[in-house]
Design a protein around this nucleic acid. Structure first.
Lengths: 130, 130
DNA sequence: TTCCATGCAAATCGTTTGCATAAAC
DNA sequence: GTTTATGCAAACGATTTGCATGGAA
């Protein structure tokens, strides 16, 4: 996995346009509109490749398919998922995040990735229904 | 799902003893040693039930089965996973986490759960191999 | 002309479901 | 007795894999 391919370029192009954390399946259908011959496994293979390369983030959510996010350097952010409705929200990093990262590093030796912050909680609309 | 059952009690008992974020499969085999007749689906059903009830936490990790953690009130902690080797580490909450939670709440309206903090990063041993 | 990526279908993994039986209330 | 939980096996969704073909270096 190092060579150019038309399909990989198409996948990256689509990812750049999307801001809603699409699933592999959603990406597959969108790319398919431009390139009907593309196969599902090419999409999965490339998403894995791209997340290894740090081009996209893979967000694994409970009880559902993984979501993907194109990483823009200028927009570092974390993700929060509502455990009731499954909705995924972005949030921007603040100063305190850096302190938390350092604390975790000193406790565990793990260096948190720039996109590696994911939280679980309950969103306001779900909370109001309880 | 509200009644007592021997199987559910056995699952909870096992969970209380484990501190290594076992998978459903691992829990199944451990309970099976005490109760060979128990079925896999009973384990899955009860883990889901218990995580809905807030007795255990469900931790979803990329490219692998979910992990479960018995929640002890006195030991609130978050989880960090190394994206290279998949090892899962605990870390304890600090003061700054509260500030981060508040910031996220004001940005998104999502209230972070006590066990809802999961991070991704690279652990020291994987980093040294790069 | 060698290596890497693709498309297809089958396989795999983790988990959920339908249904008959058994246990709780 | 009625409800709820279990065990089994089959179904399921998401993802991965083997293999033959096609494209890139």
């Amino acid at each position: 996995m190092e060579n150019y391919s038309k399909q990989r370029e198409e996948i990256i192009d689509i990812m750049k346009e999307l801001y809603n954390h699409p699933t592999a399946e959603e990406i597959y259908f969108l790319v398919k509109q431009k390139d009907p011959a593309i196969s599902r496994s090419t999409v999965y293979r490339n998403l894995k490749f791209l997340s290894d390369k740090g081009v996209v983030t893979q967000i694994s959510v409970s009880n559902g398919p993984d979501r993907y996010d194109y990483i823009e350097e200028r927009k570092k952010h974390g993700h929060v998922i509502c455990t009731k409705c499954g909705r995924l929200y972005d949030f921007n990093y603040d100063l305190d995040i850096e302190k938390v990262k350092q604390n975790i590093f000193s406790q565990t030796g793990v260096e948190i990735l720039n996109d590696g912050i994911a939280m679980k909680g309950i969103c306001s609309s779900c909370k109001s229904k309880m």
